[in-house]
Design a protein around this nucleic acid. Structure first.
Length: 603
RNA sequence: GGGCCGGUAGUUCAAUUGGUUAGAGCACUGGCCUGUCACGCCAGAAGUUGCGGGUUCGAGUCCCGUCCGGCCCGCCA
């Protein structure tokens, strides 16, 4: 809608005296000046009500023909989302006009003067607490979405958390130091975002995937304790909890062991949560990686879900049940998820679950046994089971009437992924959870190295993780048994952050890289400057990094990163508001010595 | 790269077995209305059914392709 500019006013010298939601600080009879957006208007022809909105809330302002004829006349023109400034007196409402649903519902502002600061196009959806609008529409009209209370609250939460973290770390002796955004491409880890260099045609910067190496350089540079709330970039496919760019609370400290780092980690987690109204108890419960995988099938379990997995791999190694025995024979595992008192799970639901795990998780199938009231088993697989297997299942799963047991025989990773998903989904659905609102957990004792699909030992986390001291000798004899100093912090089933001690000795770092298959040349090319740096007098050091956005997500109680980031991107990596990415002018490419060649299918 | 779900008015949805002019709520526009707060009443406007092709006398509906949004696997700490 176009509005004649003659209609619009300037602020002049008028300035607001209160924010809308804070109007109760003023007293009845006070003259106030408010500014904000027209949330809703109710035009009775005579008296006109407008709910004026800003970040802090809503307040009803009243235009009366008798007390301000000029303002009243122009108030007829007001529409949703127009921007106003009003001057008037606070009046208390009569008993029968009080609105108990509004924090400011006992008063209203009798407007004497109206300034229309701006008009507005018709909003695409209502600016309300709850809306039911397509994600695409919300993202395209992000400015309207940002005006909604849930997103306003989240932005405030981000601020509160960031501020608390800064205070906590400053008190603990950390310096906030920035690192470059234009960095060097790395062969390791995620795909880099590349930035072409104009001054060095043909060469590229990379946006940092994390400040990992740079913060180690800070330790070597004598900074002692560093932190940063750092933006990180990874050009990988997006998920509900993964964006192309995200924020980490990144820190590193010198002359410490794992325990000192975990103490910092616990303190900053507790301080941050407390600033957002969440109290956590220290010390956090600890669980080893091996136990987490064994009992929960995940290295980031939500331990509030009480169901646990049962390992039956050894039972089926020599079984006559060829499907399971075959999997074990080729290095896979067999695990079960027993659920007591599961009569609520109907046959139809089990069929739906099987379809889900087949389609979404790549399961080969979903074995199950239902234990009837009389103790008999109803199951598509029980006919393949011999005495020994039946006895083992009976004993390890603590079989009882009413129980349903799910089975997976697959590669270790897949079987665990599938059962872990069933464990959390079904555990929540059936109410098999304890009553804790918050479940902070430290996962420790990760292995340093694991075998990849090509049979090459590779790092479990990143290549700079230090082994624990007593396992150093094992690097030469049995590297796959070496324990790392890595740890994860998990909150309610989400990995919030992780860290480790780093290799501060270049000989150890070189040895590990060599075990991971790096030749001397590759080592030099990829990590030469770090290895050289380690030789200049590197102190023992370590640290961790928190996924800041995921932390906010948990505190805000939302399950999607887009709801805690001001301007998020879609699953295809687009910003629908600003329409990025976009083509660029040929001259820009020319300057960078670049030529675009699209794959033929894109024409 | 792959699997699944979705796309009809500004928006949320409907439209019988493939059948005539694609409907409704909210929003919007105009009018009326002096105590509403999801104000009310009257009237009105609003559609390339994501896009392209095919089948058919006839396609929102069936088929193929494609684009877009979402969830997941792979990938990614």
């Amino acid at each position: 809608m176009s509005t004649s500019s003659a209609l619009l006013d300037g602020m002049g010298s008028m300035r607001r005296s209160h924010r809308c939601g804070e109007i109760m600080r003023a007293r009845v009879g006070d003259e106030v000046v408010l500014a904000g957006w027209v949330h809703r208007r109710r035009d009775h022809g005579g008296v006109i009500f407008v709910d004026l909105r800003d970040r802090t809330g809503l307040v009803q302002v009243v235009f009366r023909p008798e007390s301000a004829p000029d303002a009243h006349a122009r108030a007829h023109l007001l529409r949703s989302e127009w921007v106003l400034m009003v001057r008037g007196e606070i009046e208390s409402r009569s008993d029968d006009t009080i609105n108990p649903n509004m924090p400011t519902g006992t008063i209203e502002v009798n407007v004497r003067e109206l300034r229309i600061l701006n008009s507005a196009s018709v909003p695409p959806f209502a600016i309300e607490e709850e809306i039911d609008v397509d994600e695409q529409i919300r993202l395209r009209h992000r400015l309207h979405d940002l005006r909604r209370p849930p997103l306003q609250r989240v932005l405030e939460l981000r601020h509160d958390l960031a501020r608390a973290v800064r205070e906590s770390l400053s008190e603990q002796g950390f310096l906030e130091i920035e690192t470059p955004m234009l960095a060097r491409a790395t062969p390791e880890g995620a795909r880099d975002f590349l930035v072409p260099s104009r001054l060095q045609p043909g060469d590229f910067y990379a946006l940092p995937q994390s400040p990992q190496i740079m913060k180690q350089l800070f330790m070597i540079g004598g900074c002692d304790r560093y932190y940063q709330i750092a933006r990180c970039f990874r050009d990988e496919d997006l998920r509900a909890d993964r964006q192309l760019e995200f924020t980490q609370i990144d820190l590193e400290l010198s002359f410490v062991g794992v325990e000192e780092i975990l103490a910092v980690l616990e303190k900053v987690t507790i301080d941050g949560c407390r600033a957002c109204g969440v109290e956590l108890e220290a010390p956090f419960r600890r669980i080893t990686y091996a136990e987490a995988m064994d009992r929960y099938g995940s290295d980031r379990p939500d331990t509030r879900v009480l169901l646990e997995l049962v390992d039956l791999t050894d039972v089926f190694r020599t079984s006559g049940f060829k499907a399971f025995a075959g999997v074990v024979g080729s290095g896979g595992i067999v695990k079960a998820l027993p659920i007591a008192d599961a009569t609520a799970l109907t046959r139809g639901e089990i069929d739906r679950l099987e379809k889900l795990v087949r389609k979404e998780l790549g399961a080969k199938g979903l074995g199950w046994i239902r234990v009837e009231d009389d103790g008999s088993w109803k199951s598509p697989i029980s006919k393949f089971l011999g005495e020994a297997e039946i006895e083992a299942i009976r004993e390890r799963c603590k079989v009882e009437p009413g129980m349903v047991i799910f089975f997976q025989a697959d590669t270790k990773d897949r079987a665990n992924t599938i059962l872990s998903r069933l464990r959390e989904d079904l555990g929540r659905r059936l109410g098999r959870v304890d009553d804790r609102a918050w479940d902070p957990l430290l996962v420790v004792d990760f292995p340093l190295l694991e075998m990849d699909e090509k049979g090459q030992l590779t790092h479990v986390h990143q290549p700079f993780v230090a082994p624990i001291e007593e396992d150093l000798a094992l690097l030469d004899t049995a590297p796959e048994k070496v324990r790392g100093t890595h740890y994860d912090v998990v909150l309610n089933g989400t990995e919030l952050g992780s860290g480790s001690l780093r290799n501060h000795r270049s000989d150890v770092q070189r040895k590990i890289l060599r075990i991971m298959g790096y030749s001397d040349e590759e080592m030099e090319r990829s990590f030469g400057f770090l290895l050289n740096a380690l030789e200049t007098g590197a102190p023992p050091h370590g640290g961790f990094a928190f996924g800041f956005d995921r932390w906010v997500m948990k505190l805000a109680g939302v399950d999607n990163l887009r709801d805690v980031i001001a301007f998020p991107k879609t699953q295809r990596g687009q910003d629908l508001l600003m329409e990025a990415p976009s083509p660029v002018a040929p001259e820009q490419l020319e300057e960078l010595a670049l030529r675009v060649r699209l794959p033929p299918s894109r024409s």
